[in-house]
Simulated assay, not measured.
Amino acid sequence: MPTYVYGITGADHPLHLEEVFGVGETPAPLRTVRTGDLTAVVSDAPEGLRAKRRDVQAHQRVLEVLMGDGATLPMRFGLLAPDDEQVASALDAEGDRYRARLGELDGHVEYHLKVSRDEDDLLREIVAESDQVRELRERTRDQPGAHDERVALGELISHEVGARGSAEAEDLSQRLSPAATRLSAGEPSSTHFLNVSFLVPEDGVEDFVQAVERESDQRGDAYTFTLTGPLPPYSFV
């Protein structure tokens, strides 16, 4: 039976898992795989495992308990190994890297920030600041059949939206980075120009959250800040 892996800790990490169970319709008992100074918390993997709410919550609960007692490398939901022996081999092969990462994550949590901007507000700014956009708008308004001008206008606005979003994302990341140890930038989307995770010291969480709130207040109602955390530091494993 495959082995389901929840997380990796140091061998001296407290394991208060007596009342915690793993994934599966019948919750799986947890066990450990130890090699040297590293421990992997694992269980049997149920057949046909899917990201059901019950199992995702069980995975998260195991990590919450582990992280409550110290640095843990959280594995993403659904990570399987062929058996315990393969888990032990991975701990041996990657031991130096795992130990270094545990040292980096010790005393830290992750916060994930997404920021969007009202589209109409952004378009008003582009029109107000771009002579070329205003000129093309006038042409397409006065000449309904000006197909090439409409295409050019659409391309120009799209370019401006992307460029301004990138610039704002860079500015926000730089402003918030002093309150975090590291950051991991994700890809922007059609709705969010900023998508970034921050590795934050546990004793600096209040300062970080306040820094995010200040940035949100300064930008006003046209911006929507969505801050999620504290989370297991998946983005930094």
Rank of each mutant, 00 (worst) to 15 (best):
Y223Q: 05
G204A: 13
V33C: 08
E155S: 10
T72F: 08
E94Q: 14
V87E: 04
L227A: 11
T181L: 11
A100Y: 03
V200M: 07
V115S: 05
V87C: 04
P201D: 10
R137F: 01
Y223P: 00
F21Q: 13
H16A: 14
V62N: 08
P14A: 09
V127N: 01
H59V: 05
R182Q: 15
P201R: 14
E213K: 13
F193P: 00
S166W: 03
A128D: 13
P29G: 06
D106Y: 03
S177N: 05
T39A: 11
D120S: 13
H192P: 01
G154R: 07
E47P: 00
P232L: 08
T226K: 13
A58E: 08
E213M: 05
R53S: 11
L194T: 13
A169M: 04
A88Q: 07
T191M: 02
A45E: 10
A71Y: 09
H108R: 13
Q174K: 14
A146I: 03
V161G: 07
A163R: 15
A100E: 15
I157S: 12
Q143V: 12
E168F: 03
Y4K: 01
L102K: 10
T39Q: 06
Y98R: 02
L194Q: 09
S216R: 15
D12V: 07
Q218P: 00
V151Q: 09
R61M: 07
T26Q: 12
A51K: 14
V23W: 11
E104C: 04
R97I: 03
